[in-house]
Design a binder for these strands. Structure first.
Lengths: 239, 239
DNA sequence: TGAAAATGTGACGAATCGTCACTCTATGAC
DNA sequence: GTCATAGAGTGACGATTCGTCACATTTTCA
């Protein structure tokens, strides 16, 4: 009987317990309401035990981000299996991103915060390292679609442009739009045609600019959007 | 002699004093090192006096953002006067944005934070209102260029697309790229052709996708980038 | 000149963080 | 079965910081 592995398993379960408690507190009362004492109280452990798992509060926030990124990655890899042309796969990933942020706005706020230095400089190096790893996984999902598009002849990258350039561009556009869309005060001051399909349209223009075929004039991507939306909606954890 | 206006002026000067102190603390020691006591100490006022001006710490952060946004607006309006075609003006705005974030990364972190709800829900309504106003000013600068492009025939918006859609798209792309570029750990894992001109290239593709003339195949926007860069660099406060 | 108004103060209570010396418990060698 | 030991768990504690408020000081102006 291997005590060591059981101990390890229990440790991981407890870590999950703490993170779940933190997530619940954040979902109901917002990030600023999260305290170490509350986590301890909710899990019926002492605060010291929480600190056996996390170096500080920011470390917990990063732990939550790690979970979110993981879920995102799951959704993205699922998107890769979407039957359709390469651009449709990209749209499917974008839709997954959008669904996630709309379903869990508080956690998206966390993901934003985790990109700023004042959180990262406090979190433990180990957890940051793990976040980078999941970042890479997510990036690889997008890279894979771009590679596929190049191989299938749908896309020819412009001179002096690499796969990762486009990769970051797509990510930036999605991230930026979803952040700004979350700022309601800002959005209300704008005359937008439709908030939901905004990401689709902007991505379409960007990819048209890259001459990624089939162009938006050659294919009904709005239909793709609607289909992938319905498809991925079912995957979002209800919780 | 109008005592009222003098008082008012002194009040505003003091507010500026507090904000400057806060900015200095943040620039040297980071956001997490900012405390109300330090601001009081640095300005040789008591903490209570600081609270006469700001309802809470987040209110100060928003106050700093307001200043940053103001500087950004100044730079953007300057960009509008750039002699060139409409796309060059947009690039000029983008370059201004990029220069600002590179010169003051800590304050850009603030601008990011100020877009998340957990800061906004604490700041005073008055300051949020003022932030919205400056947001609108900045937006209007971009809107103006788009309108100009439409009027001059450089741009015809696609069906079901409004000026603000493109406006938000441009902003999102720039914002997203600059945030992600600030996350060094992330960028280091990518194989990018060049970080500095990344924004230029992505914006070029987006605008090509919109058929905003002259297209990037018809005009050397890299030259525009370099020229506007040099031009705006001189405008950034040295401080 | 002095009362009223405006401005400024810093001690204080409350909240929260992160620590650490200690207790408790399960394990496995004997 | 016993008992030494590792590691899991504790929660009181000091430190930090926030935001407040009753009081002190200064300014204004009748």
């Amino acid at each position: 009987m291997n005590t060591q592995t059981r101990r390890q398993r229990e440790y991981e379960q407890r870590e999950k317990l703490f993170l779940d408690a933190a997530r619940n507190i954040i979902r109901t009362d917002g990030i600023s309401a999260l305290t170490m004492d509350k986590i301890a109280e909710h899990t019926e452990y002492a605060k010291g035990t929480v600190y056996k798992h996390f170096t500080c509060k920011e470390d917990i926030l990063c732990g939550l981000c790690l979970d979110s990124l993981g879920l995102m990655y799951d959704m993205f890899s699922h998107a890769l299996t979407w039957q359709g042309n390469s651009r449709e796969k990209i749209i499917c990933i974008g839709v997954g991103y959008q669904l996630y942020t709309q379903r869990f706005p508080e956690e998206f706020d966390l993901l934003i915060a985790a990109r700023t230095n004042n959180i990262r400089e406090k979190a433990s190096p180990e957890r940051l390292e793990r976040m980078d790893q999941v970042d890479t996984l997510v990036l690889n999902a997008i890279r894979a679609v771009i590679q596929l598009a190049i191989q299938s002849g749908d896309l020819t990258l412009p001179e002096h442009t690499q796969v990762d350039d486009l990769c970051l561009g797509l990510w930036a556009m999605s991230f930026g739009l979803l952040v700004l869309e979350g700022a309601r005060d800002l959005i209300n001051g704008l005359e937008l045609s439709a908030t939901n399909t905004l990401l689709l349209h902007q991505m379409s223009c960007l990819l048209d600019g890259y001459h990624w075929h089939p162009l938006s004039t050659e294919h009904d991507y709005l239909l793709t959007y609607q289909n992938t939306f319905r498809h991925l909606e079912a995957l979002i954890p209800k919780d």
